[in-house]
């Protein structure tokens, strides 16, 4: 399941999880304590190792290796053939750029829009604030899947500005555009909630001092409190990045043009095309490895931040 969308708003803390608090008294220690951990670790790691190893092997060797440990390690007749074949059959580079662009835009615009909203809800007084905040939180229990089809119908009837070399025209329907992948996912109730919680924890006296110095609210947001809210920006970015990079249902519904396909949907089409000698599993494993490795590398680099971001989505603070 994709659990990263819409975590419910129990409360947020950005407490780092890096050094676990040792809750239990010291265990028995020794090899025995590692046994369940190792068994579980193997069950999580082996399928991924199998994917990577298979991506370098020709068809016959993948099948031949299935009965032994060789299935999980890149040994034998290794080559990049599967990767080359993927690039020959589909514009996977283009899919990659599409996903990268769409994800980056959603993350960046989302940080701006959601932090601004969170700032207003946390630090400014205005009528209807509590109702508005409660309304935003209430949207978190609505799964996207429940309104995906009405949304497709809605965006296919929205007007859009189409740019041509000799001017522009107003056309009907957002389907098959970058904007249909980006704009609906910029505002995010959970991010707003996260920012509001964090901005609340920054002393109000800072605003008052800045107001005395003649700063406006924009200056206060930009230069006074946001620089202190780094962890909230990092958490929001991580919690947005992952589900967007992995996004599948929405692009499947609104993108038909091959050149606009993101990587996940491109994968589905790649599988569906097939070849004469049956399903080319080696190539498919090459494709899945290619789109997985970048995320795993990013995850390993920011492992601590990832884990504490996820943790913050569920802890009562």
């Amino acid at each position: 399941m994709t659990q990263l969308q819409n975590p419910a708003p129990v409360a947020a803390t950005t407490k780092p999880l890096g050094k676990p608090v040792r809750v239990r008294p010291r265990g028995r220690g020794g090899v025995l304590s590692y046994l369940p951990l190792v068994i579980l670790a193997l069950s999580f790691a082996l399928p991924l190792l199998f994917m990577i190893a298979s991506s370098f092997k020709p068809r016959e060797q993948i099948l031949g290796d299935l009965t032994s440990w060789r299935a999980f390690v890149p040994v034998g007749d290794l080559s990049m053939t599967n990767y080359v074949d993927v690039f020959d059959r589909v514009p996977v580079g283009r899919f990659f750029v599409n996903s990268l662009f769409v994800t980056a835009m959603i993350v960046l615009l989302g940080l701006l829009v959601n932090s601004m909203a969170g700032f207003a809800l946390a630090r400014l007084q205005f009528r209807g604030k509590n109702v508005l905040f409660a309304g935003i939180i209430a949207t978190l229990i609505v799964p996207f899947e429940t309104f995906a089809i009405p949304m497709v119908y809605w965006v296919s009837n929205l007007p859009r500005v189409a740019l041509y070399s000799d001017g522009f025209a107003i056309e009907q329907g957002w389907n098959n555009s970058y904007q249909v992948l980006i704009i609906p996912f910029i505002a995010n109730a959970f991010s707003i909630f996260l920012f509001a919680q964090y901005y609340k924890s920054i002393p109000k006296s800072l605003d008052e001092a800045a107001l005395i110095d003649g700063a406006g609210w924009w200056r206060i947001y930009r230069s006074v409190v946001s620089p202190l809210a780094g962890p909230a920006f990092a958490t929001s970015a991580i919690l947005t990045f992952l589900p967007q990079w992995n996004s599948y249902l929405w692009p499947l519904l609104v993108i038909q043009d091959e050149e606009l396909r993101p990587v996940q949907v491109g994968m589905r089409y790649f599988f569906a095309t097939g070849t004469a000698e049956g399903t080319p599993w080696g190539q498919i494993m090459a494709y899945t490895t290619m789109i997985t490795i970048p995320v795993i590398v990013v995850f390993l680099c920011f492992q601590r931040a990832f884990v504490s971001s996820i943790a913050s989505s569920g802890v009562k603070g």
């Binding site: 997985t292 390993l300 990832f306």
Partner: peptide
């Protein structure tokens, strides 16, 4: 171990589904 247990979560559902289909 924590990193390993978490690895499938950062792998996309499409990839995991395709891998398990195989």
């Amino acid at each position: 171990f924590r990193v390993l247990f978490f690895m499938p979560v950062v792998t996309s559902m499409v990839v995991v589904a395709m891998l398990w289909k195989f």
